[in-house]
Amino acid sequence: GTEDLKEEAKKALKKGDKERAKRALKKAGLSEDQIKKFIKEVL
């Protein structure tokens, strides 16, 4: 589900894998702006 994808994105970001995080967030249905915001909040 969406929460799982967001968790996956957080883990990817902590490993420095932004591309993987972006893919997971796109799958979760987030827009580009939401993805940028999510990444900023996590990092």
Rank of each mutant, 00 (worst) to 15 (best):
K37H: 12
A12T: 02
K11L: 10
G1L: 14
E32R: 07
A24D: 06
K27G: 06
K27Q: 12
R23A: 14
K26Y: 06
R20E: 13
G16Y: 04
A21L: 05
L5E: 04
E7Q: 09
A21C: 07
D4K: 13
A24W: 08
K40M: 14
A28N: 02
L25Y: 00
G16S: 02
I39N: 01
K36D: 15
Q34E: 15
S31N: 11
S31H: 04
G29F: 02
A28D: 03
K14W: 08
K15M: 15
R20F: 11
R20W: 12
D17P: 01
T2W: 14
K27T: 09
F38Y: 06
L43P: 02
K40L: 13
K14C: 11
K11Q: 13
K27S: 10
K36W: 06
A28F: 05
G29Y: 01
E8N: 04
E41H: 10
F38N: 03
K40G: 11
S31G: 05
I35G: 00
S31I: 02
G16W: 03
E41W: 08
E32Q: 07
K36S: 09
G1S: 14
G1M: 13
K27W: 04
G16M: 05
A9Q: 01
D33K: 09
R23D: 14
E41T: 09
I35D: 02
D33G: 07
R20Q: 11
R23W: 05
K14T: 08
G29C: 02
L43D: 05
K36R: 13
K26W: 04
D17N: 07
L30H: 01
G29M: 03
I35A: 04
L5H: 07
L13H: 02
K18C: 14
K11G: 07
E19V: 08
F38Q: 03
L30G: 00
A24S: 06
K10W: 05
Q34D: 14
D17G: 02
K14M: 14
E8A: 09
A28P: 00
K37S: 14
S31Y: 02
E7V: 08
K6F: 15
K26R: 15
K37L: 08
R20K: 11
K36A: 13
L13W: 05
S31M: 03
